[in-house]
Design a binder for these strands. Structure first.
Lengths: 232, 232
DNA sequence: CGATCTGTTGAACATAATCAAACTGCGTGG
DNA sequence: CCACGCAGTTTGATTATGTTCAACAGATCG
């Protein structure tokens, strides 16, 4: 992990308004950007933090991508989430003050460190930031129940739609992008086997829902068709 | 919904320290109890709040129990959670400022209302309460991924263990209690069919994991055996 | 350039869903 | 107070979806 110091990390970041949903022009922005003063380069398969490690703050993805996964007592791994540029990870560690999952980089990534103590201090001094922070926590409480009661085809469709909408922050199109996680990661995340994910993706190609000229590449994704699959 | 006013709702509540995990003796307790000044009686099947209704604060269960459920565009209902005495609901509405799910009483319940605006104000003035509140949000982020990758027997076992540990706050034993939700509710919550839940519970009785002298009654629950099922 | 990780494909199998029918118990109204 | 109706539960037979197992192909990386 290589540490980089920059006086104005957020001001030079094209995702500046994304992490906390506070605009560049807002008077609150400069307060927030002051507590984000350090970024680290995390290479592929290197950890941002480890399960059970003591909480030492939140992290936000500036470039690249991160997956979180749990390891049970029996040694089984379950992928619990993917984090793309502009997204914050570590919220779930606030309760126990230890990280709940392992966080590992899916590619070489640039990760910004956020002191939670500083953030709390800032929040107690600034009502807008406090409210925005509670909203960020609240936002994470929403999802999850959807992907639970879907069949395998719908799970993969929902995953692609979600991923496409999130990757949109950094690229210009939600129809052409690279998948950072492997099919195994996706399978674990959706509670499916890699075989089922592979077969489902190939069925989508057969149905012309997307093309793929190379591994992990999604081209010309037809989001409307995916939404129709979800409505069945 | 019948509204009751009490000057010291929390001081007379045996769950006082449960909702916010702040002890009765703490100097912060009196601050918190000041913003909880009103409780309502919600009869069985009556709503505490409705999906999409504008956010008007958090609620905590003083007596009884509540279920939350989503209704999809296609009219399908999915139970997303159960709330027992001492537990707070409504956190997920903070983000969009609208309730995400319907919250309906499982039996005649007494529900305390918590002004979120007052709570935010209190949090910005009081570091301990602010931190405790963030912890409450964070706590809710943990679960969910477990029940996803279990088989039907393990899901029901995990549900019983969780329910037993939570009911323990109000009774003396985690081995004898009444289930507030119906088997249909439990099935929906676990993403199983009512048939599967019924068969699994009867298999547990056959295996002497618990007894049941009447409907919805769990007696002499063997938590150790349930944990063994989860470790398979 | 071999070794290892990732993805593909097919066949057999298992788990839980589905469908159907009957039963129980609870609350309601006659 | 009993009869009725209905929601919730039980039980069995059949079926479908996704898993498992196995073998191989392709990609990636030191």
């Amino acid at each position: 992990m290589k540490v980089t110091h920059q006086s104005n990390l957020c001001h030079s970041c094209h995702l500046a308004t994304s992490c906390f949903n506070i605009s560049f022009e807002s008077p609150h922005f400069s307060h927030l950007s002051q507590i984000i003063q350090k970024s680290i380069i995390v290479k592929k398969n290197e950890a941002v933090y480890y399960q059970q490690e003591k909480f030492r703050g939140l992290f936000t993805v500036k470039q690249g991508g991160v997956k979180t996964y749990l390891v049970s007592e029996t040694g089984q791994q379950v992928v619990t989430g993917f984090y793309l540029p502009g997204e914050i990870l570590g919220f779930d560690a606030v309760y126990s003050e230890h990280y709940i999952a392992n966080a590992v980089s899916l590619t070489s990534s640039e990760i910004c460190w956020i002191s939670f103590a500083d953030l709390l201090k800032l929040a107690s001094e600034n009502q807008t930031i406090q409210r925005e922070l509670f909203k960020l926590f609240s936002y994470r409480l929403q999802s999850n129940h959807q992907k639970f009661h879907l069949n395998s085809e719908q799970k993969v469709a929902a995953f692609l739609l979600d991923y496409a909408s999130r990757i949109l922050k950094q690229t210009t199109s939600e129809n052409d992008f690279y998948l950072l996680p492997t099919q195994q990661d996706i399978a674990s995340y959706l509670n499916l086997t890699p075989e089922t994910v592979s077969r489902t993706l190939h069925r989508f190609i057969d149905q012309e829902i997307f093309q793929s000229s190379q591994a992990k590449r999604i081209e010309n994704l037809n989001c409307q068709k995916l939404r129709e699959i979800l409505e069945r």
